[in-house]
Nucleic acid binder design. Structure first.
Lengths: 194, 194
DNA sequence: CGGGTTCTTGACCTACCGGTCACGGCGCTC
DNA sequence: GAGCGCCGTGACCGGTAGGTCAAGAACCCG
């Protein structure tokens, strides 16, 4: 028998993380107390401190986990596509879809960016993602497919476009993801001129 | 004599707002207590509650004030420029400069976006700014200068680019504002292709 | 069954937070 | 200089936060 009736171990850990993500996104990090989290899960307070050393550590883990997940999703979507320009487009679409499926995590990341002590964790993950895009860009510039702009700057710009459109249209207005992704790709590729 | 030795009235109000902005940006909104603010200014706690009805109201006023200021700066920079494309470019540059001069306010805005109860104040201001850009865009599209994309979506995309580049390069790495502004304009105009 | 680990409980502690308030002085005006 | 708002003080209050801990319950293995 591998199925247990009681929830323990890794499962309980995940349960806490999932619930915490939800509550943090809904009410904010600080306004959500540890008591809120454990009550919502239906366990005692000690459980929390058995799995995490504190509220801050929890948030750090949440951030790391979501960044890792986003990266995995991107890689999965890109696969072994040979064309660097196509890789960027696939990355944008995958990111947009991920934002749709993990809206709460997106809010968390945005919050973490406003408190200095979480900046390190955040930057680490962001730089990895940016470096990825920048690599594709360098290749595309090398083969003359892309304009000769600073790849890192452009990578951050793309990130800005995706995040902003995701927040405003996917999360805020429930616009279909594909539509928003199309718009993001179109803008990133050609800008507003024509 | 108009100069007083003691600080009172509007001056004191501004003093509190300035200091609060600094502390909120440095340590976060919730971790900064009202006591921290008044201590830092060097006054008693009652003073705070004389000028503001509470911590939340203060933040709302901070947000409104900074959004108003940003808008004024943009309008000032655009002046009576007749070309809609030029207006957009001037707006981007002015926004970037504003972010440089008001980095703390930028952090505040970003934080406010993560707590549901401040979202209304925030969206109001943001939509105004976006509508401005969208208006210029419509004109540019009408005269065939810009590609026929949804003006509102593009406006939000531009906003995303500016904010992201400002945060990463202007605030985070102290890259000269003009350089970053150049990059933002280049990307927004032509995208990454060429 | 027995004994060691792995979890779970929830009352409890300390600290501090936002907010109040009775009181006290400054600076006008008449 | 009396009187009156405007401004300022800081001890104080109720509530709650993050975090601890001694006491078990559940589980695993020999």
């Amino acid at each position: 028998m591998s199925r247990k009736l009681t929830t323990r171990g890794k499962d309980r850990r995940r349960q806490l993380m999932t619930e915490a993500t939800r509550l943090f996104a809904e009410h904010g990090f600080h306004p959500t107390s540890v008591s809120d989290i454990v009550t919502s899960v239906g366990v005692g307070k000690g459980v929390f401190y058995w799995y995490f050393s504190g509220k801050e550590e929890l948030l750090e883990q949440l951030l790391e986990a979501s960044q890792l997940d986003l990266r995995r999703t991107q890689h999965g979507a890109i696969g072994d596509e040979p064309d660097p320009m196509q890789r960027i487009e696939l990355g944008i679409r995958a990111s947009m879809a991920w934002c749709h499926d993990h809206r709460d995590s997106l809010t968390l990341v945005q919050f973490a960016a406003t408190e200095a002590r979480f900046a390190p964790v955040l930057r680490a993950g962001q730089e990895v993602a940016v470096d990825d895009v920048a690599r594709h860009l360098k290749e595309a510039i090398g083969s003359g497919q892309a304009a000769d702009l600073d790849p890192e700057v452009v990578a951050y710009a793309i990130l800005g476009v995706v995040q902003q459109l995701a927040r405003t249209f996917v999360l805020g207005r429930h616009t279909p993801v594909d539509e928003v992704a199309d718009a993001a790709v179109a803008f990133c590729m050609h800008g507003l001129m024509r």
